[in-house]
Lab assay of single mutants.
Amino acid sequence: MLDDRARMEAAKKEKVEQILAEFQLQEEDLKKVMRRMQKEMDRGLRLETHEEASVKMLPTYVRSTPEGSEVGDFLSLDLGGTNFRVMLVKVGEGEEGQWSVKTKHQMYSIPEDAMTGTAEMLFDYISECISDFLDKHQMKHKKLPLGFTFSFPVRHEDIDKGILLNWTKGFKASGAEGNNVVGLLRDAIKRRGDFEMDVVAMVNDTVATMISCYYEDHQCEVGMIVGTGCNACYMEEMQNVELVEGDEGRMCVNTEWGAFGDSGELDEFLLEYDRLVDESSANPGQQLYEKLIGGKYMGELVRLVLLRLVDENLLFHGEASEQLRTRGAFETRFVSQVESDTGDRKQIYNILSTLGLRPSTTDCDIVRRACESVSTRAAHMCSAGLAGVINRMRESRSEDVMRITVGVDGSVYKLHPSFKERFHASVRRLTPSCEITFIESEEGSGRGAALVSAVACKKACMLGQ
């Protein structure tokens, strides 16, 4: 009897593995994704193909990295998701002549009506938060230079001027797309009239992360975010950046690689679950690469896999709870928690219980395998993109072996128990001629924006502006 049951459990697990095998990517698959990513990057950089390229390769006008001589107080704003952060950054000489960066910050959550109302409502709310922060720190009387981390696709015309191309991540505030974001912020500050600010720089969160990590390690020339969304930036040779005049030196390019796949480059790798996630998203047909990796989508992918296993009578005796059938019910943090389970399955059992399920031991094991399959594919897909960037940098610099540091931020990278190990191992397999160091950014977005502002202020002083 026991043997029969054991055989049935083994057969069930084997069927589960057959279904989950769809998520496995072979090294040849990853090399294919990497080569296609490089081709799209090239198209994004070139003037004649930029418009139709899915990977936009947006110039950021960040050319210099901090040298350690900029000092002063800077205000930093960070808008990239449902939370908005205001930070005071003091850049100065530390002990023994070292450079020191001290920060104080406060988080504000953005109400739904500000995210989806008008641009005026959104930026009025942001300036209200700045006003509140300055009151708390008794700094209303000071006109501070301000660095703005704005983590949406922007076409820069200068370091302090950028046109919002399109909202992502659930934002829909009308009247912002096609307009200068810094102008919208300046107008809102003017409307309030109770404080003055000098907006000197606007950067993407990947750029802010790279600059913040450069402060720790001067070989950091790539910034990457794996959180709600997924994106990367890197220092490109100016001669390859056709959208900006000049051939000397390097400029940081914001790849906006989340949109890779929007022209069909990933079609052969998309599964039924991916198509369902895409169809029910706020932007169907867009940001397809990001939807395979980002935390906004990972939990939902797992939920759809679990429903398939229920329908195949391989999980929960073929019956799903009402909660499990509800879109968004299986949160991405559950994926991390399930994979963090120590082996007694308590954590998995508790999560499934909150979803109205009474799982068996085998159910718990199957749910864990589903989570591992989805998150491992995410790590491997992400590795193909980064390997594409790094191999490109090595080739354009004609280096036999390139040493490089990548600064990384984002909740999936930082909080998932195995993502970074799987990701690092896969990147290294795909970049055999590179020695890569990964560092995690601390308060990256805010500190990085302030350091970019410090560079901009120093330049302005040198130019006598």
Rank of each mutant, 00 (worst) to 15 (best):
449 A>C: 15
251 M>L: 09
287 Q>A: 12
355 L>P: 00
397 R>Q: 00
40 E>D: 14
220 C>Q: 00
15 K>W: 08
137 H>K: 12
6 A>R: 10
8 M>P: 05
366 I>K: 02
337 Q>N: 07
401 V>R: 06
236 E>Q: 00
73 D>E: 05
437 T>H: 03
408 V>G: 09
11 A>V: 15
234 Y>M: 02
259 A>Q: 04
421 E>L: 09
214 Y>K: 08
189 I>H: 10
452 V>L: 12
203 V>W: 05
442 E>I: 09
453 S>E: 13
232 A>C: 08
52 E>T: 14
361 T>N: 11
349 Y>I: 07
161 K>G: 07
300 E>S: 00
286 Q>K: 06
43 R>N: 11
248 E>W: 04
92 G>D: 15
4 D>I: 03
414 K>D: 02
455 V>L: 15
42 D>F: 12
164 L>E: 13
67 E>A: 07
366 I>N: 14
373 S>F: 05
287 Q>P: 00
291 K>E: 04
362 T>H: 03
389 V>W: 01
66 P>Q: 03
228 T>D: 09
352 L>W: 03
320 A>N: 15
209 T>A: 12
81 G>Y: 06
215 Y>N: 04
317 H>M: 08
299 G>P: 01
122 L>S: 06
443 E>R: 02
112 E>I: 08
401 V>G: 13
331 E>P: 08
231 N>A: 12
380 H>P: 01
268 E>M: 12
407 G>L: 01
361 T>Y: 04
464 G>L: 06
156 H>I: 04
37 M>V: 06
395 E>Q: 04
169 K>E: 11
193 G>I: 10
460 A>G: 13
351 I>W: 02
280 S>Y: 15
166 N>D: 14
258 G>T: 03
104 K>V: 06
171 F>Y: 14
460 A>Q: 12
339 E>S: 11
154 V>N: 06
434 C>N: 00
322 E>I: 07
269 F>T: 04
425 A>C: 13
231 N>L: 02
32 K>D: 13
64 S>T: 13
118 T>V: 07
81 G>L: 02
27 E>P: 01
361 T>K: 06
167 W>T: 10
126 I>E: 00
222 V>M: 07
411 S>Y: 10
156 H>N: 04
118 T>D: 06
255 T>G: 00
185 L>Q: 01
59 P>F: 03
20 L>M: 08
403 R>E: 10
384 A>H: 00
252 C>A: 06
108 Y>A: 02
398 S>A: 07
408 V>L: 08
314 L>S: 06
211 I>D: 00
112 E>V: 10
238 M>A: 02
218 H>F: 04
60 T>D: 02
85 R>N: 15
77 L>N: 04
85 R>I: 11
408 V>I: 14
93 E>W: 09
4 D>P: 13
293 I>G: 06
316 F>C: 14
314 L>Y: 12
302 V>G: 02
182 V>M: 06
134 L>M: 09
246 G>M: 06
418 S>T: 06
39 K>L: 09
357 L>R: 09
111 P>Q: 03
76 S>P: 05
212 S>M: 03
373 S>T: 11
223 G>H: 00
3 D>F: 02
273 Y>G: 02
72 G>Q: 02
141 H>M: 08
6 A>N: 15
178 G>I: 07
181 V>K: 05
454 A>N: 14
292 L>V: 15
19 I>E: 08
336 S>V: 11
204 N>C: 12
166 N>G: 14
281 S>N: 03
449 A>R: 06
375 S>A: 06
423 F>P: 00
23 F>M: 06
222 V>Y: 01
265 E>R: 07
153 P>S: 04
139 M>T: 09
90 K>D: 06
336 S>T: 15
334 F>T: 11
133 F>R: 01
316 F>P: 01
124 D>I: 00
460 A>T: 13
300 E>R: 02
321 S>N: 09
435 E>P: 05
418 S>G: 12
19 I>A: 03
227 G>Q: 00
366 I>G: 02
360 S>C: 12
210 M>R: 01
146 L>A: 08
359 P>K: 11
439 I>Y: 07
280 S>D: 15
411 S>V: 11
195 F>R: 06
150 F>A: 13
113 D>P: 14
251 M>F: 00
206 T>Q: 07
365 D>T: 10
126 I>A: 05
271 L>S: 07
75 L>Q: 01
269 F>N: 05
179 N>A: 13
416 H>K: 00
128 E>S: 06
292 L>Q: 06
414 K>N: 03
385 G>K: 00
183 G>W: 06
43 R>C: 14
60 T>Y: 02
346 K>T: 07
90 K>E: 07
215 Y>D: 12
293 I>V: 13
260 F>M: 14
92 G>V: 11
359 P>G: 09
345 R>E: 10
75 L>T: 02
337 Q>L: 12
158 D>H: 14
160 D>W: 04
73 D>W: 01
355 L>N: 01
160 D>M: 04
23 F>V: 01
388 G>Q: 11
163 I>L: 15
175 G>R: 11
55 V>M: 14
431 T>D: 00
170 G>L: 12
182 V>Y: 07
2 L>P: 13
339 E>H: 01
463 L>T: 10
449 A>N: 08
186 R>S: 07
228 T>M: 12
228 T>R: 13
388 G>M: 03
310 V>T: 08
248 E>D: 15
318 G>L: 04
78 D>E: 15
327 R>C: 13
228 T>W: 14
226 V>M: 09
196 E>G: 07
237 E>T: 03
446 G>Y: 10
126 I>K: 01
188 A>P: 02
257 W>Q: 02
165 L>Q: 13
16 V>S: 14
263 S>H: 14
412 V>F: 09
12 K>C: 14
450 A>S: 10
320 A>Y: 04
114 A>Y: 08
180 N>S: 12
286 Q>D: 06
252 C>N: 00
251 M>P: 02
162 G>M: 04
387 A>M: 01
51 E>Q: 08
210 M>S: 01
128 E>L: 08
63 R>M: 10
207 V>T: 10
82 T>Y: 05
243 L>K: 12
391 N>D: 14
273 Y>W: 13
284 P>R: 14
10 A>R: 09
438 F>V: 04
139 M>S: 06
225 I>E: 06
22 E>S: 04
97 G>S: 15
37 M>Q: 01
138 Q>S: 10
183 G>E: 13
53 A>N: 02
189 I>T: 06
144 L>Y: 06
404 I>F: 03
6 A>H: 03
366 I>F: 08
461 C>F: 12
243 L>G: 10
127 S>L: 04
260 F>K: 01
88 L>E: 11
414 K>Y: 00
